[in-house]
């Protein structure tokens, strides 16, 4: 009986944690979108107002920020500085491929960043500013979508995890 109680408690805890984990995906995605918006604001300032070279502009823009997008941008900057045998578009696409399977980044943001990257750095400051504006507008829409998903599924996964755990425990008992 003691063994049954312990295993039931373990199952409830595990299922609850799984639910929390699933729910956190939605939280973390919103966090990542907001970090991405901050990075783009900083990057726009570096490019439009200071004309900083792209790799350095990326490094300056990600300073004091965290999250999965920071790692993506830093990887792009590293490649630009040390690997000179591919074009910027290739670097951007390859690095995006690397974070494609990250559970905390949505397809919407990936598509926005894919299109944005093809224009980054290759025109004058006025055009660059417009590309930043477009990307920011699209990210705002994506943030709203992510928030809706968070409200719709975030709480559901938390409750579902606990209930699933309890259900399995009751059956076993």
């Amino acid at each position: 009986m003691f063994l049954k109680i312990v295993s039931s408690i373990s199952i409830v805890v595990c299922c609850t944690l799984l639910g929390i984990h699933m729910s956190n995906r939605y939280d973390r995605r919103i966090y990542n979108i907001r970090v991405l918006q901050s990075i783009l604001i900083n990057l726009e300032t570096e490019i439009v107002y200071y004309s900083t070279l792209l790799s350095q502009a990326i490094r300056n823009s990600t300073r004091n920020l965290e999250g999965d997008w920071k790692n993506f941008f830093l990887e792009v900057a590293d490649i630009l500085e040390y690997k000179k045998d591919c074009s910027f578009a290739e670097v951007w696409k390859e690095t995006l491929q690397g974070i494609k399977n990250c559970p905390y980044i949505g397809k919407g943001e990936l598509d926005i960043m894919y299109r944005f990257g093809l224009q980054l750095g290759n025109s004058d400051r006025l055009s660059q500013r417009k590309y930043f504006e477009i990307a920011q507008q699209q990210l705002k829409t994506e943030e709203k979508n992510a928030l809706q998903l968070h409200f719709r599924y975030g709480k559901m996964y938390r409750s579902l995890g606990l209930l699933l755990g309890l259900g399995i425990a009751i059956i076993l008992l």
Partner: peptide, 17 residues
Amino acid sequence: IRRTLELISSYSIYAFE
């Protein structure tokens, strides 16, 4: 030509406007 332009501008055409 495209690659040379990217490299001489350090991928930053805007900086050399």
